[in-house]
């Protein structure tokens, strides 16, 4: 069945700033470390979740974004994520330690989809997951795949977007997709919001 779906909320984290629906809602000094930025954001949004501190940078970014995007999600909210660098930050950390007591707490984060596990635990989502990797955000494909999950009733809503964290920088862009809203969920809208 062909029908329209809607983007009802978007969140973006870049350059130590957090935007919700294009509005700047939090920022720190640009020169502080990403870890410090994340810690300040965690406090600012009152996310009381001690496990946060154990996560790698990709998961911390995803956690903050998902908490800002919406307070609660339906249990069958699908997660469709993409990035360019997979789990590069944790990979590098693990690689440096493989000859000298590798840490299980680091190794567990050497898969990009762990962020979906963390979000699923936090928001109690027992839903569809798919993590894709590409050099640039494939808005067309991500929209297509997400929409097919919704159309086939494999999910009643979805969080989709781009979660990039590499050794130099990060760029996070998540969207909440549901059956009713103002902005039609299309590849064009998604790409426009991503580049904005």
């Amino acid at each position: 069945m062909k029908r329209d779906w809607y983007i009802t909320s978007s969140v973006k984290l870049k350059k130590h700033q957090i935007f919700k629906d294009d509005e700047l809602i939090f920022k720190t000094e640009p020169h502080i470390s990403t870890q410090d930025f994340l810690k300040e954001a965690y406090r600012f949004f009152g996310i009381n979740y001690p496990k946060f501190h154990k996560m790698d940078v990709l998961c911390k970014l995803g956690m903050i974004a998902s908490c800002v995007l919406k307070e609660e999600y339906p249990k069958d909210t699908a997660l469709v994520f993409q990035n360019a660098s997979s789990s590069e930050v944790s990979d590098t950390q693990h690689q440096e330690s493989i000859h000298n007591f590798p840490s299980p707490a680091t190794f567990v984060y050497t898969l990009p989809n762990i962020v979906m596990g963390e979000l699923s635990i936090k928001h109690e989502l027992q839903s569809e997951n798919a993590f894709f990797v590409a050099e640039d955000f494939q808005a067309q494909f991500i929209q297509n795949y997400t929409q097919s999950l919704l159309e086939q009733k494999k999910a009643s809503a979805a969080i989709c977007g781009w979660l990039e964290a590499n050794l130099d920088d990060y760029y996070l862009f998540l969207n909440y997709i549901e059956p009713r809203g103002m902005h039609i969920f299309s590849a064009e809208t998604l790409l426009e919001k991503y580049t904005q």
Partner: peptide, 24 residues
């Protein structure tokens, strides 16, 4: 090519992705 990297279910999930892109 599309890359699926979803831990130990990747190989199966990639076939599910193919199925959806063919179905639609």
């Amino acid at each position: 090519p599309i890359v699926v990297s979803n831990a130990c279910i990747s190989g199966g999930l990639a076939v599910s992705v193919a199925k959806k892109l063919i179905q639609n």
